[in-house]
Amino acid sequence: MRISVPSIPKVVLSATSPARTITPAAATERIAEFLAPGNVACITGAGVSVDSGIRAYRGDNGRYLNPNYKPIFYQELVDPTAKGFAFRLLLRLRSYLGYKPVKDALPNTTHYALAALQYTSLIKKVITQNVDGLHHKALADVWDPVTAGERILELHGTLHKVHCNHGHTVDRNTFQARLSATNPQWKAFADSLEVTGQKPRTNPDGDVVLEEGVRYDTFKVPECPECLLEDRRNSILKPDLIFFGESLRQEARDRSYADIESCDRLFIVGTTLATYSAFRLLKHALELKKPVLMLNVGPTRADSLEQVEKIELPSGLILRDVVRNVLGVNAMEEANVRRMLSSGVVQPPLDDDD
C-alpha cells in the first residue's frame, strides 16, 4: 500500500482565482460579526503555531515546504521486521532531538486571542490538528486540565505523552529523561546543539531533519518499564499522536463530529485542510448548513467550495482586534481577557532552505 503526505489537490493549487481583497479593519469587523452570536466551533492547524517558532508543513503557496524530507509513516513504525526496528530507532532519535523546541515553545497572539474567545464562551469548542499543546498553555492560568480537555480536542493527539503498543502511557518529560540516561552521548550532542544554537530544523510533529550520514544506529530505546513488570520485553513506544498513514482514533473522530453538530457556526484558522480528517469536518458542517468562515493565507482544500467564506490575512495581524471588537468594553474590564490580549510571542521561524 502506497502512503503519501496529505496534499491539496493539484486542481486547487493551479486555480487562478484570486482571493478577495480586504483590509485588516474590514476583516476584523467581518470576523467579529461572524463570531458575535456565539456557540462557535473552531478548527485550527499548523499556521496558528508559526508565530511560536514552529514551522508549518506548507507555505503560503500551499505546497509542501520540504519535498526532500520524508516523515516516518505508521506502517514503517509498527513493522515487526529489522527494517521496522531501524525506522523506530530513526524516529526516536529525530523525535528526541526535536521535542525540546516544541516543549519550550510559547503561545503566540493567535493562541491567546482564541483563548479569550473560549474563555468568554463565544467559541465553545476548539478542534486542533496541532500536537504542540499551545492552546492548552494559553488557557493554563484560567482553566484546569480537565476543563481544557473538555473544550479543546487534539484531533491528532499530543507530543507531550508517549505510549507503548500495550497501552502503557508515560509523560513525555519522563520518557525524554529515560532516553537521555540510556544515550549519554546523544544527550551531550543535544546539549551541544543548544549551546551553539545549531538546532536542527523541527517540523510541527516534533520530528527533525538530520544531516546526511548521521549514524543513528547507536541510539538506544529503553524497554517499557510497565511491560517489564508484566514479564514482557517491549521497546515499541511512540508519541501519543497520529502518524501519517495511521487511522484517526474512533473516540476523537466521534467527538469531533459531535463538536461540529453542537455548534451553530464554524470558524477555521491557519490550516490548508490538506489532511482529510479536518476537511471532512468542514464537509460535515456544510452538510448541516452551518455558516463557515475561514482565516488562512494561501490555497486551501476548501477553496473550491462556494459555501465557505474565506479571508486571506495572517491571524496574528487581526485576531486580537477581533476580540476587542466583539467583546467591546468588557474586553478590557475583565482581567483575564485583558491579560490574554496583551500576551503572546511573535517569533516566527527564521528563513532557511525551504
Rank of each mutant, 00 (worst) to 15 (best):
R30M: 13
R30S: 13
R30N: 13
R30G: 05
R30T: 13
R30D: 09
A32C: 09
A32V: 09
A32P: 06
E33M: 12
E33A: 15
F34N: 04
F34I: 09
F34K: 05
F34A: 04
F34E: 05
L35G: 02
L35Q: 04
A36C: 08
A36L: 13
A36H: 14
A36Q: 14
P37I: 04
P37R: 08
P37E: 06
G38E: 04
V40M: 03
V40W: 01
A41T: 13
C42L: 13
C42N: 05
C42G: 03
C42H: 00
C42Y: 00
I43L: 14
I43P: 00
T44M: 08
T44I: 06
G45P: 00
G45A: 08
A46V: 09
A46E: 02
A46L: 11
G47R: 02
V48H: 00
S49E: 10
S49Q: 09
S49Y: 08
S49W: 04
V50D: 03
V50F: 11
V50Y: 11
V50C: 14
D51E: 15
D51G: 06
S52W: 05
S52T: 10
G53Y: 12
G53L: 11
I54W: 10
I54G: 07
I54E: 05
I54S: 10
R55Y: 12
R55L: 15
R55D: 08
R55W: 08
R55F: 10
A56C: 12
A56T: 13
A56D: 15
Y57K: 04
Y57P: 00
Y57V: 01
Y57H: 09
R58G: 02
R58M: 04
G59R: 03
G59A: 12
G59M: 07
D60Q: 10
D60F: 12
D60K: 11
G62A: 07
G62E: 03
G62N: 01
G62Q: 02
G62S: 05
G62R: 02
R63A: 08
R63G: 04
R63F: 07
Y64T: 04
Y64I: 13
Y64K: 03
L65K: 11
L65R: 13
L65Y: 00
L65S: 07
N66Y: 15
N66R: 15
N66K: 14
P67D: 12
P67T: 13
P67V: 09
P67K: 11
P67S: 12
P67L: 13
P67E: 12
N68P: 02
N68Y: 14
N68L: 13
Y69Q: 09
Y69E: 06
K70S: 15
K70I: 14
K70V: 14
K70Q: 15
K70L: 14
I72Y: 03
Y74Q: 07
Y74D: 07
Y74C: 07
Q75I: 05
E76I: 03
E76P: 00
L77Y: 15
L77C: 05
L77A: 10
L77W: 12
L77P: 02
D79P: 02
D79L: 10
D79V: 06
